[in-house]
């Protein structure tokens, strides 16, 4: 086996304009190196202008998502050796505007997160003197959906996100679902109104790739389908009992 591997890395400099292109770098192929270690080797030793985000290098901060050979992946937890003999193609996440090299623009994603009201809503303003009681089963009901690290791999995997930039998208909808399912929350109606608007849950055509690429097994696709069911039930209820809105 060769002791080096070729990384083909996307380069884009907005100050020069044009289209992104791929540049090849030869990096050491070490058994415990992740793709991120390869990128850092380039930045530290070969070309200091290569630009990418990274921080925790332990799969929890969500900064270092990129396309590796066309698949949205966290570079800090993908062993370089799994791509041997290479070359490995590393690009910015699909479906996002590219700021520079491997850095994409996430402002729109953050606006979408805020839009779904991801906080505990109490209609009754009740503040218990101690904790809200919540059984392990009630915790389990939403726990999976609270594990999202906002890495946005799901947006890069979702063709609907690519075709319609206004689509609320998997992570934001899963987050809405997380709060809806939390026994401490009373904001379900508000959030249902938001997610069942145009460009919400009904845009989803169940491609299911969001759940495949999710590094934390959040299963946003499941969240969206469950929300569709809830929204339908609510719609029928309001249809049958027009004044049934409480």
């Amino acid at each position: 086996m060769s002791d080096t591997i070729i990384l083909e890395v996307a380069r884009f400099n907005p100050e020069r304009g044009g289209e992104p292109s791929y540049e090849s770098f030869e990096v050491p192929l070490r058994p415990d190196w992740m793709v991120l270690d390869g990128l850092n080797h380039i930045k530290d030793q070969l070309d200091g202008s290569l630009t990418f985000r990274w921080s925790c290098r332990m799969g929890i901060c969500g900064s270092c998502g990129m396309m590796i050979n066309g698949v949205p992946t966290l570079t800090c937890e993908s062993l370089l050796i799994n791509y041997a003999p290479g070359p490995v193609r590393v690009g910015p996440l699909d479906h996002f505007p590219v700021v520079k090299d491997l850095v994409v623009d996430l402002d729109d994603f953050l606006a979408k997160l805020q839009k779904v009201r991801p906080w505990v809503v109490r209609k009754d303003d009740f503040k218990p003197p101690r904790e809200f009681m919540q059984s392990p089963a009630q915790l389990e009901a939403f726990h999976q959906f609270s594990l999202c690290i906002n890495c946005t791999l799901c947006y890069a995997a979702c063709p609907v996100s690519g075709l319609d930039p206004n689509f609320l998208g998997p992570a934001a909808i899963a987050l809405a679902h997380r709060y809806n399912l939390d026994s401490r929350d009373q904001g379900v109606e508000d959030r249902l109104d938001i997610v069942s608007q145009h460009e919400g849950i009904w845009d989803c055509t169940v491609v299911g790739e969001c759940s495949v690429v999710c590094p934390k097994n959040v299963d946003p696709s499941l969240a969206i389908q469950q929300l569709k069911l809830t929204a339908t039930k609510e719609w029928f209820k309001s249809f049958l009992l027009p004044r049934g809105k409480h």
């Binding site: 884009f12 289209e19 992104p20 479906h95 505007p97």
Partner: peptide, 13 residues
């Protein structure tokens, strides 16, 4: 490119 107004590359599907 005008300084401080970098134009992001918007990929098209």
């Amino acid at each position: 490119y005008t300084q401080y107004q970098p134009k992001a590359y918007r990929p098209r599907m």
